[in-house]
Design a binder for these strands. Structure first.
Lengths: 120, 120
DNA sequence: ATGGAATATGTCAATACTGACATGGTGTCA
DNA sequence: TGACACCATGTCAGTATTGACATATTCCAT
């Protein structure tokens, strides 16, 4: 069923770009995930460009700082709806949002390999 | 409050309720609604273009016929996520979906008024 | 008409998403 | 050093969304 797949997604913590050898993501689903990542990134960029804090944006969309943080990190607990709503509230036009949605994956900007800060 | 906006929303089945006097619809929210309407319309068109039945699409997305019906009528009980997922499963590319999301409202395509032979 | 296929609408238990809160981490300034 | 602002993460109870099912409606053949 679909639930099983969802479960696998969660287990993977939304890790997507990374080859999912044993994690078979359907095209549609990986597309969804990538869209969310793009939207999340855009939210952060738009917010920062307006020199806003997460708390301020939270108030603006009637939510809390923690949720905004999750939004921007594309946490698995945030819906596409909330992502888009946030962009809208930040003043993004439909055209702008459509552009983000339709944009291809990050142009190979050499994905940074999540460094582990090892308590030096 | 903007009566025109409310009218359109109500026409689309989005209950704004009679108590709309204190129910302020933000621009962001009406934008969300319009996006959903556009996505719903696209789902139906794509499905029909593939000569599929709602039931077939339902199986394809792991859902039921009733939900697909609600999807296509932009019922308030369907999320943006499901709408986009449906388009993806129907084979739409990110670019295509982005186009729908970013598209301006239907330019009032003056439907040709089919002459109604009214009883007479 | 009658039947059947496609679509629409209502309901419901299960699950997903939500805002709020607590708490921890990091950087900065004095 | 401490105090403070900002961001991340975990949890939880309330709400929204889900698939499934029943049923109604529309449409098109026969």
């Amino acid at each position: 069923m679909k639930a099983s797949k969802q479960k696998k997604l969660e287990a993977a913590g939304w890790k997507v770009g990374t080859a999912s050898e044993f994690l078979e993501l359907s095209d549609a689903e990986s597309m969804l995930v990538n869209m969310k990542l793009a939207l999340a990134k855009e939210v952060r960029e738009l917010r920062l460009s307006k020199k806003m804090t997460q708390n301020e944006l939270a108030r603006l969309i009637g939510s809390s700082q923690s949720r905004v943080a999750k939004l921007e990190t594309a946490d698995h607990s945030v819906s596409m709806e909330l992502l888009v709503r946030s962009l809208a509230v930040l003043g993004a036009s439909r055209a702008q949002i459509g552009k983000v949605v339709g944009a291809k994956k990050t142009p190979a900007k050499q994905m940074s390999q999540k460094k582990r800060t090892v308590k030096s």
